[in-house]
């Protein structure tokens, strides 16, 4: 999410300043950050495989099913409510945007804006979880009667768990940031938090497509 900036403009100079600050830390820290970043990206990749496995299972079951959604007790299960799902998705994607601004504000040493954006992100994340809870309670199926329900609840449950962890993660980051754990040039934790939050968003894109649109 590079900020577009042409050389010579204020935005450009600002960007240079941020990058300089980011690089100009003591080399031990820079290297530690490097190592942790790499480890964190690998962790996200591995997590991705976890979701992929269940997505594979879902595709396998879905393509071998005679009709979809399946029929339970003589009634075909209703499709999920796309409108509600879409709204909830917007909430989650919105939180991705606000998180981006939170990190940018931190980079520009604007702590107030950072706090504001972060709180907004956390609220949106919690809002998404609330939406999911509503979705679960009003879902047209349960997790035992058909593989549709099984896949839906397992995958979105796994995702919801990730969002929940994300909310906790971001809250902890917020507390740490306000306690002075991070500085203008050392804020790996915030980068990791942002990356994780975007990851959770991207997974949701796939799930939303699989369960609501397809």
């Amino acid at each position: 999410m590079a900020v577009a900036a042409t050389p010579g403009t204020a935005a450009y100079l600002d960007r240079i300043a941020v990058e300089e600050r980011f690089r100009d830390v003591d080399p031990v820290y820079a290297e530690t950050r490097d190592i942790r970043m790499f480890g964190f990206v690998l962790f996200l990749l591995a997590d991705c495989i976890l979701f992929s496995s269940f997505v594979f299972a879902y595709l396998y079951l879905r393509t071998s099913a005679p009709v979809w959604p399946p029929i339970v007790d003589g009634h075909q299960i209703e499709r999920l409510d796309v409108a509600f799902g879409a709204m909830n998705s917007i909430v989650l994607f919105g939180s991705g945007v606000t998180m981006h601004f939170a990190l940018e504000s931190w980079k520009h040493l604007n702590k107030l804006a950072f706090n504001m954006w972060l709180v907004l992100t956390i609220l949106l994340g919690a809002g998404f979880l609330g939406g999911q809870a509503h979705e679960y309670l009003s879902a047209p199926m349960n997790y035992t009667s058909s593989v549709f329900g099984a896949s839906f609840f397992t995958l979105t449950g796994l995702h919801g768990f990730h969002v929940f962890c994300g909310v906790v993660f971001l809250t902890v980051l917020g507390i740490q940031a306000n306690r002075g754990v991070y500085t203008g040039s050392k804020y790996f934790g915030l980068i990791a938090g942002t990356l994780y939050w975007h990851f959770v968003d991207v997974i949701w894109v796939a799930l939303f497509f699989l369960f609501y649109l397809w």
Binding site: S53, F56, A57, Y60, L61, S64, A65, P70, Y143, T144, S145, S146, V147, F148, A150, S151, F153, T154
Partner: peptide
Amino acid sequence: AFNVPFFDPARGGSPVLYQHM
């Protein structure tokens, strides 16, 4: 543990799916 039907053919699941996974 929770009777989730991934592998139960009577509810649309497949025992072969487990073997793939």
